[in-house]
Write a protein that binds this DNA or RNA. Structure first.
Lengths: 216, 216
DNA sequence: CTCGCCAAGGTGTGATCACAAAAAGGAATG
DNA sequence: CATTCCTTTTTGTGATCACACCTTGGCGAG
């Protein structure tokens, strides 16, 4: 057995490559809500046949990242305000629990890493770059939640992020603030202090903050 | 336009039929954990080609109802105790919220319907029929949660049920009780009284009760 | 009897094609 | 100018096939 290289990249499966790339684009708000996609178009874009394109689309539809009309047409979902409220409530429920479980394992190295990420969030906000903002913001949350050692919960949270992706871009496009997210600082402070109630409140506030933009 | 018939069943799509039937079997514990499946076998069983079988399997894998090995082999998932604990915690989080949202809309007709379903749960327990027990038990919960008017949350809860399906059967197979579920009565009583804290506690207890069987 | 090897069958993957249905475009009619 | 109808194009669905890989069963060497 070779010791110099990893077991070898076993399978750069076409459908998985398409799935991962599309998923990332959707989650980070790179595709507008309601945007239509076609299997042949995706196949052309990723240089594969319809078969892997179909599989990746089917997978994303199952996760709520894409929606299909009755006739099978594919598009990113257009979320109603009620559904956005639901998804935000789910984020609050799941992510507060994840943060709470991560708290006892959050050492100094993690907190410093969160501060570095938060600095990048601030840069993205200053540059009005919605996609970068969404990406670094989610990286902040994921870095914290990874410490919870709860993969099923984290997967659920990511599924919610995925469903909100296209809409988030449209929402943050209206955002005119230039200051970095205030609640991230509260999260970091609560982590330092080992303050569990404070952490729960800070995460809940951060997650539901975006809802206020709907009233504009 | 015809008034006697519905717009016509537009598409008994093969992959959707396979998906629905498989999903139901998995959610209700009709398939043992770790059971292997093959695309050609499923195609033969449902009298379709590999293509629809693949699509339905891909969808179920995306929902966590099936798992794939690194080489692409398909089987129902074998859950570790840690994952079972996580899924139970997710059920507690989401279903308590759903019940709480359903409470203000729960009228007498709904409560009576829940009592009828609960009677059927009791019969299934008395007959030691694990699949019937799981099916009627989930019907009890779904009937309540439908009143919450929160489709995204309900979908999340069903995804968790789906992931636990095969394992639930194995778990309830050990069950030797003959009395109907005690917490369902508490849920109904709390609904009658409009007692929100009591309802939350009853749902949480009912959902996490199964965990105690792991210690046996 | 145990272990290793090798061949045969089984399995998922991806490409291609025929088909039906839906959308799009344009011409003719009011 | 709007509307209806028809043709053309586009789109998703499902079947089939070739291919590479894994798994497994059996055989033979030690």
């Amino acid at each position: 057995m070779s010791l110099t290289a990893r077991p070898v990249d076993p399978a750069p499966l076409a459908h998985d490559r398409v799935y991962r790339h599309l998923r990332s684009r959707i989650m980070h708000g790179d595709i507008a809500p309601g945007q239509a996609l076609t299997l042949r178009g995706l196949g052309k874009e990723y240089d594969v046949s319809m078969t892997p394109a179909r599989e990746s689309v089917r997978r994303l539809v199952a996760e709520g990242a894409l929606s299909m009309s009755a006739s099978g047409r594919i598009s990113t979902p257009l979320l109603s305000n009620e559904r956005i409220e639901e998804l935000a409530a789910l984020r609050a429920l799941i992510e507060v629990e994840l943060a709470s479980r991560a708290l006892p394992r959050a050492h100094l190295a993690l907190i410093e890493r969160l501060q570095n990420i938060n600095a990048r969030v601030g840069e993205a906000v200053a540059q009005r770059d919605a996609v970068s903002y969404i990406r670094t913001n989610l990286e902040f949350h994921r870095t914290l939640y990874l410490r919870a050692q709860a993969p099923a919960m984290l997967a659920m949270a990511e599924t919610v992020w995925l469903q909100m992706g296209p809409t988030m871009n449209a929402l943050y496009g209206r955002l005119r603030r230039t200051e970095p997210p205030q609640f991230h600082r509260l999260i970091i402070a609560a982590l330092r202090a080992g303050d569990e109630p404070g952490l729960r409140l800070a995460v809940r506030s951060d997650v539901t903050q975006g809802l206020r933009m709907l009233a504009s």
